[in-house]
Computed example of a mutant assay.
Amino acid sequence: MTAKIGILTISDRASAGIYEDKSGPAISALMAEVLTSSWQAVARVIADEQDLIEKTLIELADKEGCCLICTTGGTGPAKRDVTPEATEAVCTKMMPGFGELMRQESLKYVPTAILSRQTAGIRGGALIVNLPGKPASIRQCLMAVFPAIPYCIDLIEGPRLETDPAICKAFRPG
């Protein structure tokens, strides 16, 4: 079974074509590097609008059947940064440990990591993970939490994600 992975770039400027989306492709490249099981990207680039983010997360989870949705952008303190609020609005269970670990990892590189409001949550059979907007930060954060992602997907009855243990060893108890 091919796992579908949603990659959602949330950026007013990238969605308007003012600049090239580099964050979404960074997530996709990391997935290609880490995952050995079959997967397919379902990518979207949208503006920082809470109802649009909510609608797109619902579409990716419920209609597209993505088991994992990685968002990038909209996690800071600026007025238009509403990704965590949209994520919380569509999830039935929040997974705050993801945001805690990502901030802890980012603090090794920049003191402004405390300004990040990244979170994660479950919607049906999908794990939604909010990532920062910068490609280097995306890699640092995703590599920090990815060992727990395949087991989380197992627990919500999603497809089995296998990783290349030389790059990222997925943890499954037992």
Rank of each mutant, 00 (worst) to 15 (best):
P147F: 07
K134V: 13
N130V: 00
R117H: 06
G124P: 05
N130M: 05
G133F: 06
F146L: 13
I138K: 04
L115M: 15
G121F: 10
I122R: 10
A144G: 02
R139I: 07
S116P: 15
R117D: 12
P147E: 12
A144K: 03
G125Y: 11
G124D: 02
T119G: 13
G124M: 10
N130W: 06
V129D: 12
S137I: 00
A136P: 01
G121T: 00
A148I: 08
L127P: 03
I114Y: 15
M143Q: 10
P147I: 06
P135K: 05
I114C: 15
I122E: 14
Q118D: 07
Q140Y: 14
P135L: 13
S116A: 15
P135T: 02
L142E: 10
A120I: 01
F146N: 03
M143H: 02
Q118P: 01
G125Q: 13
R123A: 06
G133P: 04
A136D: 12
R123K: 01
A120F: 02
T119Q: 13
Q140C: 14
G121C: 11
L131K: 02
A144D: 04
Q118Y: 04
K134N: 15
I114L: 14
G133C: 04
G121S: 11
A144C: 05
T112M: 15
Q140E: 14
A126H: 04
P135E: 10
V129L: 06
A126P: 04
I122F: 13
Q118A: 12
A120V: 00
S116C: 15
F146Y: 07
I122Y: 08
